[in-house]
């Protein structure tokens, strides 16, 4: 059995290339208060706040030199940020964009503008909508009353504007149930005129609110140096991403609450090795590519 890493033998991961630049565009502010949120977002959690268009624009300029391939926007709920539409419009001039939303606050006028912005350029604008299962019975206890209905309305609105949303769901069921749940969800989405359902199941991250809901990581849920031998590091997001927040640049969108996750003020300062000392690193190791889209999934070759 592998030994538990101590501070002396925690494996470190280098930033191989900055392929994805994330923006914590609405900080930890969200209109919902999901019981499994790994950074405990809520209407009152302002430990991270909104990014301005000016801040995003500065990072976009900085990103050119790094050869960033894709841009991701998350929160909290990105569409609570009053500048989100101009921010996304500006970013589409630089590269492909993915927005992670709960789908409950989308407005037709915003989506019309964004659809126009996407069509003006050559890059994809992807929407990832979080809905935790194919029914209100699986979703609402986690995400809040009537959130299934409201998010599905958001999905319909996206489809009406010509987008093909990716539905992401955190696995609050047994792994063996995945295929049945995906099939059921495909059926539900087709009934809602979403005839090309794109679905992605995500593992739960047992930190933040989720640690209170179920259980946190055990002391053995850590990556050991032995586990990194012959492991493809590109499966770990810290190998190819960084996150811009209003409090500096962080290693990944998952570990915002971890004291060592803030790497510096600029991308330059944040281009340092990161020690894989967290339980969430173990989940990232187990499942791989949990934050990126399927079209950008890294798959190792031998």
């Amino acid at each position: 059995m592998s030994s538990l890493p101590t501070s002396g033998n925690v494996p470190h991961v280098e930033l191989r290339s900055l392929d994805e630049l994330w923006f914590q565009v609405s900080g930890t502010l969200c209109n919902l208060e999901c019981t499994h949120c790994f950074i405990s977002c809520s209407p009152h959690n302002d430990s991270f706040s909104y990014l301005s268009l000016e801040t995003v624009a500065k990072s976009l300029e900085e990103s050119i030199r790094w050869g960033v391939k894709e841009y991701y926007f998350t929160g909290g709920e990105p569409f609570l940020n009053r500048e989100i539409v101009p921010i996304l419009e500006r970013t589409l001039e630089y590269g492909p964009v993915t927005v992670l939303t709960n789908g409950t606050v989308l407005k037709a006028e915003w989506l019309s503008r964004l659809r126009d912005a996407e069509q003006r350029g050559s890059y994809s604008l992807e929407f990832r909508v979080s809905i935790d299962g194919p029914t209100p019975a699986t979703n609402d206890p986690i995400r809040g009353p009537r959130t299934f209905e409201r998010a599905m309305k958001g999905v319909r609105l996206l489809v009406e504007h010509g987008f093909l949303p990716i539905i992401t769901m955190a696995r609050t069921w047994d792994l063996s149930e995945d295929e049945r749940i995906l099939e059921e969800f495909r059926g539900v989405l087709k009934e809602q005129s979403c005839d090309r359902p794109r679905l992605k199941v995500l593992p739960r991250l047992q930190i933040g609110a989720e640690a209170d809901r179920s259980e946190g990581y055990g002391q053995h849920d850590r990556i050991t140096p032995e586990m990194m031998q012959e492991f493809d590091e590109s499966q770990l997001i810290c190998n190819h991403s960084r996150v811009v927040t209003d409090r500096g640049v962080y290693v990944c969108p998952i570990l915002l609450d971890a004291p060592d996750a803030r790497l510096g003020e600029t991308l330059e300062a944040a281009a340092v090795d990161f020690p894989l000392s967290h339980g969430a690193c173990y989940t990232c190791y187990q499942y791989g590519a949990i934050c990126t889209n399927l079209s950008a999934a890294k798959s190792s070759t031998t």
Binding site: I64, V68, E70, Y94, A296
Partner: peptide, 21 residues
Amino acid sequence: PRQTNEFLWDSTTSTHFLDKL
């Protein structure tokens, strides 16, 4: 050039990424 099975799609690959590559 950096990974045999990397997907580089037209719509999800920025120009400055390709330049650097």
